[in-house]
Design a binder for these strands. Sequence first.
DNA 1: ATGTCC
Length: 482
Amino acid sequence: MNSNDFKRINPYLYEIPASYRADMRAPARFYADAELLRAALGDKSLDQLVNSATLPGIVAYALAMPDIHQGYGFPIGGVVATRVPDGVISPGGVGYDINCGVRLLGTRLNREDVAPYLDQLATQLQRNCPHGVGRSGEFVLNQKQMETVVRQGARWALTGGYATEEDLERTEENGVIAGADPAKISARAFERARDQLGTLGSGNHFIEVDVVDEIFDETAAARMGLVRGGVVAQIHCGSRGFGHQVCTDYVARFQRVVHQYGIVLPDRELVCAPLSSPEGQDYLAAMKGAANYAFANRQLLTHLIRRSFAETLAGAVDDHSVYQIYDIAHNMAKIEEHEVDGQRVRVCVHRKGATRAFGPGSPVLPEVYRDIGQPVLVPGSMGTASWVLVGTEGSMSQSFGSTCHGAGRMMSRSRAKKEVQGGELRRKLEDRGIRIRAGSLAGLAEEAPQAYKDVDRVIEVVHGAGIARKVARLVPVIVVKG
DNA sequence: ATGTCC
């Protein structure tokens, strides 16, 4: 594949026609500029995008966001909507980290308030928030409690005083997706995850403290309590070993039956089952359970962040309270209604490394955000900016209410580890005034900013294409990683 | 992403 295979629809959108390959059931569209197109041609992600356009029941087109990169079967940064009930659902279209997502927390503090306490705050955050591969935390659940988390998501955390009603209201789906069924989740998944709630994990997961660097939409920013120089905190993590095991289990189960449904796959990793099949329905119920676990996980991390702010700042500042701005998923499949060619259609929207971005007026948004559109949280690579956006009418009409999710990896983990020295990277970031707390220097090297695309460029594309609108740009002052 | 191979 090369750039000649693409038709340029507008300055921010390319298309591969369905005639490109005989097995495509729809065209493939890629939101990008010339440089991001060149970057994406460096791995298999665009071939994976074309593969995803062969799925039975696909509606309109397969979509790729500007931060696309290679994933399991599907590209990370892909959006595929399949028709209900005759389309398919694919675990690879969701990803191994089910409901990996981002939570943004606000404070009443500004940069000057926290400046003297940044080292102490960084240390407390690292101490309080368990991090690293396989790491367990202080919340150890029995089977019954786990099943409650599966059914209730972040709402489960109300009972222990780890959540407020406002936190839940300001979470996608109010922090709980209906229809989760613990009976569809394996004993092994439960065993792996019962001591992992309220833990960060590793890889690109992080907790950050950021300062608002620039405001682009005063009205929307004010609604979220964002002011220039204001301090916010960000959580990026997912469902830990729980979602991973659910995905593993269902990929194996789907592989055993996919041939029975007469589905021909260009890549084994694209394995799927009809939405109406027992396998499809069971996966959906299990995936919802893992998604609810992830919402609960980010909720408990919120509790630990509040504890860290209190321990560091109580008595030192007037108000150290931490409130929820929003929490979004970027690895999920959801049944939604969208308008396609003037018709309302029910579809299963697979968003893998893509964020829901519902526009103004959507009834699923909390009242405080209904007229500005859904907040969209886009973390950049380590040490670079992160963005707050809102969903638009354009995302609703063009991209099944979806937009990008991050900077997008450009260099493999192994290459980054070879080319980047973790200790040196940490020094460089610390020299720029960013407090780094990293569990592993090798892990830090894998997340080096040079291994990622330029998040500001990614944002220019989605903003320019109209599938999200800029609200605020954030820059980090503390980064905590596994 | 992931008890980075039950």
